[in-house]
Amino acid sequence: MTAVGATVKEPGSSVKNKTGSWRTFKPVLDKDKCIDCENCFLFCPEGCITKENEIDYDYCKGCGICAEECPVKAIKMERG
């Protein structure tokens, strides 16, 4: 059944949709190189990198923005 007015009462419920399956290249983050600039956290369109530099691969679409914007090249895009 469609809810009255098609209202969605479950905030943030799009997490049911695991967009990680869209990915062809995978960002791999080297915490030893990281200087905690927060660029990857700020710029990820999915909001799937935490401030602690954990990448949630369930949602990462592999866009490569994080790798591109990392000032110390701590993130590499790898196949798979």
């Binding site: 059944m1 469609t2 809810a3 009255v4 007015g5 098609a6 209202t7 969605v8 009462k9 905030p11």
Partner: peptide, 28 residues
């Protein structure tokens, strides 16, 4: 009860329905 905009109970009003859902909303 069906819908209201209140930061204490966030909901989304005016969503985008695909062909799986639109007709039921109209039938309602």
């Amino acid at each position: 009860k069906h819908a209201y905009l209140d930061p204490k109970d966030p909901m989304s009003l005016g969503t985008f329905t695909d062909p799986n859902y639109y007709m039921e909303a109209r039938y309602d």
